[in-house]
Design a protein around this nucleic acid. Structure first.
Lengths: 198, 198
DNA sequence: TCATGTATATTCACTAGGCGGTATACATTG
DNA sequence: CAATGTATACCGCCTAGTGAATATACATGA
């Protein structure tokens, strides 16, 4: 199966993703993205109206792959529910130890663009996190947890907290601590459910 | 008691703090800070060697006040340990509902400067979070928790997670969810301690 | 008391380069 | 020919940082 050649637009988004994630949004000029993509700036502006649109395209392109990754880590783990949730954090800790890891692109973008709450990129980030939360909530509901929505929020908070803290300290050990906390919270919620059921 | 007049340096740091927090580091020019401080740019560069040093001064100035705030919220709350910890999150949620709230300055700066891990501002942020964690750990140790250091980390993760998530969604409700999670974790840890003690 | 020396603090005017974005023209292909 | 895509060259503005001169405060010595 021959690998389909990437369109110019895809090449540009890939270049933008690489640079924006590695160095931040404002730190990367449109010229730099164009050069990384092997294209002139004018070509870039043919495919994208503005830098803002390019930022949005970068995050849009990370939405599904990131979600799938979480779901794979969860699904491949063997054990009960707390263990499977914790497995997400353990796998993420492994990724965070790679030198190129720079936290969560969605959160870093929202931090950088905090003064523009309506920015398309922030909306895409918010939607991404909502999808994660909804998936977790469904999972917990299916397992019979008493307050699946609340539990899902708390797992999300631990996940995003570990993104922020590990980025600051450059110590992936915090991610494993978050995983333990997540497992504890799931355990407690399931124990409550079993108590009521009996 | 006449209010002591602020030194030029303090005036500049105050202007920098206001603008950097409201708009982000890279989004604010040195010219803008100088103008906000009512000072020429050359004067600013008399007091600070570079923009980087100014960024560091901004965060340095937030370190102690922020810690004191957390300790006050904790200390003023009436109830047992889980309640006092949760009170931090409740108070923070109140603050986060103010329109000018833009998350945690330390975390946002670390997100923006992620490509410069050794930057003075990042070191100051890391030290600040370590102080919070150490204070929590001491508090839990004094209360007889079995693993005070681990518990302190988990509270920090929830706190910083709520900063990130609330900034993204602009929904302070997440902070209260984080507070509930924190209270649960403290409760579990104290229950374990009591079990072993008996 | 008053001139002078010196360190601190401040200003105006400037530079060299980077920024997002664009006017215009050329190439390719149905 | 007409639509799509790419390239060169450019614009006006903003950026962090600087050179040289000036103002102020205050100590010293005649």
């Amino acid at each position: 199966m021959a690998k389909t050649e990437k369109s110019t637009r895809e090449t540009i988004v890939a270049a933008a993703a690489k640079l924006f994630y590695a160095e931040g949004i404002r730190a990367v000029s449109v010229d730099a993205v164009a050069e990384e993509a092997g294209v002139t700036k004018r070509t870039l502006y043919y495919h994208f109206e503005s830098k803002d649109e390019l930022i949005a395209a970068y995050l849009e392109g990370r939405d599904q792959p990131n979600l799938k990754l979480f779901q794979t880590w969860f699904g491949d783990a063997e054990g009960d529910l707390p263990v499977k949730v914790e497995a997400i954090f353990v796998a993420l800790a492994r990724a965070a130890r790679h030198p190129k890891w720079k936290g969560c692109g969605f959160l870093r973008t929202s931090a950088e663009l905090a003064k523009m709450p309506g920015h398309p990129a922030i909306r895409i980030g918010a939607a991404h996190k909502k999808k994660f939360e909804a998936w977790m909530a469904e999972t917990f509901a299916a397992a019979g947890a008493t307050e699946p929505a609340m539990l899902a929020r708390q797992i999300l908070l631990l996940l995003d907290g570990s993104f922020a803290v590990v980025l600051l300290h450059r110590d992936a050990g915090y991610m494993e601590a978050a995983g333990k906390a997540a497992a504890t919270l799931v355990q407690v919620a399931m124990a409550e459910a079993n108590t009521r059921a009996s």
